[in-house]
Design a protein around this nucleic acid. Structure first.
Lengths: 230, 230
DNA sequence: CGCGGCAATTGACATTTGTCAAGTGGCGAA
DNA sequence: TTCGCCACTTGACAAATGTCAATTGCCGCG
């Protein structure tokens, strides 16, 4: 691993407050792996052996039920995933695969649990990170149960626009993935975009333009208790 | 608070491993309150001031979006709620109200955070509890996105039957609440029950009988990665 | 015992979402 | 540049879910 990779990871909320030797030990025993797109990194139902940190690229977390499948989230640099399974030494509830060429740091689960025993600041950061993930998941449930597909799309677009500070968005992944992330089929996503056309949303390929954000917000009714980044 | 109430709370996974003085301090500063049915205990968007422990009765956690409302979970003795908001000193994402006459122990959020700083065993228990809640929420998302209403009902019934160790279930709350918990309207729940009739499910008021659990399971396809208690 | 109130059910219909099939169009490889 | 692949879109239809209104039926109170 390059020194500046280590620096970026060190700056993550999860690691920023850890003691130097804690962080060094975690990084020392970790593997940094490169993967091409489309590679399955972990499978639902496997034992949680590693905490994963996406250093470069893009990783999709998804879940299956029989032949059905849904995208749970997209992890981009620098983000971690499946912390909860690692901590409780349980099995993964979600699978993961690369969407792009990616670099992933894999920290042995055992080392993470060890570090919690010896470094109170790290433990505190774990608690904060867990609570954050928990609340994100609760928000996700709220969105799924309380909103229609078009509303979820509208709010997703508004949030993206806010993050990019512009009325023009470039989708960071295929619409097929977005539809699954929002809990609908690709066909239904197309129709949702058609609905939003009446609220000033136009799309040309992966580039989406929000002509009238106020009008879109009136339709979407964004709510920090559902949409916030947490 | 009666001594045996304290004992039950002490036996919770969250408190079982805490040091004696940690637990004593938490209980000493806590309020034990009694509420009639239908009382709102907390509101979405309020600051997280207390960790709540349901000592007796039944509490419904729910969330709203505009005029829409959905039940997020039901907490029964002895269970805690809104741990995540308390830990990160954030606002509540969910509201809570009593469904029955209830007793609730309210522990000041500040004390909980203090205790984490001084008692490593307690902190470890908090991590475990948080991870558990996180995983429960992930499972909830999976169920909502991957299953139909009738499937969610079928799996809920199977899980209940397993917990009660019988083919006969008595609903612990109104069907109206169950429908909202499962993410559907009361009307739709009635229809879901009608569908399950063909799989051996009969209901007489609040008493549900599963005549053929194997047949019901064939329809429901229970999955420990979605249904498990976590 | 009868009545009132309310949860639950049922039917009719609207909306949302999914499925299947047939285009359409953009983008990379030759 | 052209071709072909593949993501995306569109239309037609089916299934799931929501809404509204009427009815049933249970339960507790008088």
């Amino acid at each position: 691993m390059r020194p500046d990779d280590a620096a970026v990871i060190r700056s993550l909320p999860l690691f920023a407050d850890a003691r130097e030797e804690t962080f060094a030990e975690l990084v020392r025993t970790a593997f940094l792996q490169r993967f091409p797109p489309g590679v399955t990194l972990i499978n639902e139902n496997d034992e949680a052996d590693f905490l994963h940190v996406v250093v470069e690229g893009q990783v999709e977390l998804f879940a299956t039920f029989g032949e059905r499948e849904t995208t749970m989230s997209i992890v981009e640099p620098v983000g971690t995933f499946i912390l909860a399974a690692v901590l409780n030494a349980r099995i993964y509830l979600q699978s993961a695969r690369t969407l792009q060429k990616s670099q992933v740091l894999m920290i042995p689960a055992e080392k993470v649990r060890d570090a919690m025993g010896t470094d109170a600041a790290f433990t505190r950061a774990v608690v904060t990170e867990l609570a954050r993930g928990y609340r994100r998941a609760v928000k996700e449930v709220k969105g799924q149960k309380l909103r229609t597909g078009a509303e979820r799309l509208a709010n997703w677009l508004l949030q993206r626009a806010e993050a990019e500070g512009a009325g023009r968005i470039t989708l960071p992944f295929e619409k097929r993935v977005l539809s699954s992330l929002l809990g609908m089929t690709p066909e239904n996503l197309s129709r949702a975009f058609a609905v939003l056309k009446t609220h000033g949303v136009t799309s040309r390929g992966a580039v989406i333009t929000l002509a009238d954000r106020a009008a879109l917000a009136a339709f979407a009714r964004p709510d920090p208790l559902i949409d916030g980044p947490e």
